[in-house]
Nucleic acid binder design. Structure first.
Lengths: 236, 236
DNA sequence: GAGCGGGTGTCGGCTGGCCGACACCTATGT
DNA sequence: ACATAGGTGTCGGCCAGCCGACACCCGCTC
């Protein structure tokens, strides 16, 4: 019954029979990715697409100035590396393991052939890409309209809401949600388009106000509803 | 021979036989959109997807604070309104005519059926969405890494490079490109994530430096190469 | 246990770009 | 001819957030 670890991006395989899935996986190569190790980098040939089987992959892009901007994380079940691959252009973004991970690599031509012969899967893929477009679009809007605090709060909500992983075992008060993907402040800064220092300061303030609670190495949100409220105020 | 008016987003129909295209268009309703008139708005039911047949449609999103952020423009041949429609959720963005336009509306279920029965078209659609993902991703990176001037220059290049429309008839010096989609300063500001005033100031400076040239109501870029250079400097 | 590297908290100075305000200039319709 | 509306140029005040710098803390390896 606990299906909620899946994200909106993840359901490519859901519509397939186990037989079809096996067909796709037959041409997949299993690959290990160490923490911090690159899967691909900007400029590489985009000959493969990937599926995360365990761990977490960081997708990021370097600005011309060398600053690293994290676009999103790919969790187990999600596909990544699709955009450039399906257009036949070199990689524009980079991917690396956030933690030690295991992924499946599939040749572009195999994947294309698979989509061609499985229209349902192609429609799924369209749905996944659509979701990603909306995520990016909204990030864009946030970035140019909200201040850092709001963006940060939204980030916290996003990464706890879906409960991408099982919640931590630490004591939780009723209603409290757990953000157990432990991001460094630098990661958060890079996700939110701010500096490490600013993020630190904001988080300290949020803790002081009882809006977030530090539990061991990660964070809890005692009153998610209050945070949601914080984000939506704007016009009034 | 002059095919270059098409954009990367536009080639959904390219792979189809004229017969297949006719099949798709049979279930399309032709619709006129006045300048400034809405096609759909955030919150609406996303029951249709659209194809621009003439004119130009502005796709934008309102921030909670009411600020309008332009995500992109859809030009003749391009499809829009796909993302929400393919996921079965209400519209999150809004669309309105930038100028008087004509569009085709297709019911979601007809479009899905079409994709299901035309795998090539589905693959095309995936390519189009992929391109859009990359565009949005890059905008995100720019927005959080570059200053307003750089972003503005990049915008000018983007909208002149593809020569989305035939160049203007005014005299052009050799090598000079024409940006004949006349955006207001406010539009540019909203595309670039800045205020109208800042954009104005920047543009005046760029004109003073001979980097852009005002021709009647729109702009020319005498030395596009120099602009490209401006954007790429960063690390060095 | 010394040394080191990566993550964190904090401070002050500086500034890009936001905000509000105002004057001007062209269309457009009446 | 006038009015109204939308687009443009410019100014000064102001502040959120950037930048550089430094001190601390923890876990790691040699």
């Amino acid at each position: 019954m606990e299906e909620s670890w899946k994200t909106a991006h993840a359901d490519l395989l859901a519509a397939l029979s186990s037989q079809e899935m096996a067909g796709l996986f037959r041409c997949a190569r299993r690959r290990c990715v160490a923490r911090g190790a690159p899967v691909f980098e900007a400029g590489d040939d985009a000959g493969e697409i990937f599926i995360v089987s365990s761990g977490c992959i960081k997708l990021y892009q370097l600005s011309p100035g060398g600053k690293e901007i994290i676009l999103w994380f790919a969790f187990p079940g999600e596909i990544f590396g699709v955009a450039e691959s399906m257009r036949g252009v070199p990689r524009e973004i980079s991917a690396a393991g956030k933690i030690a991970s295991e992924i499946l690599a599939i040749d572009r031509k195999d994947f294309v052939e698979f989509l061609r012969s499985h229209p349902e899967a192609a429609l799924r893929a369209i749905g996944i890409l659509s979701a990603r477009i909306r995520t990016l679009g909204s990030s864009l809007v946030e970035l140019s309209a909200d201040d850092v605090e709001t963006r940060l709060v939204r980030l916290l909500l996003r990464f706890s809401a879906g409960s991408l992983r099982p919640p931590c075992s630490a004591s939780r008060r009723p209603g409290e949600v757990c953000m157990n993907l432990d991001l460094t402040r630098t990661d958060m800064a890079s996700l939110v388009g701010a500096t490490r220092q600013t993020v630190t300061t904001m988080l300290v303030r949020l803790q002081r106000d009882g809006i977030v609670r530090a539990v061991g190495r990660h964070l809890h949100l005692p009153e998610p509803a209050r945070l949601t409220l914080m984000c939506d105020r704007g016009v009034g």
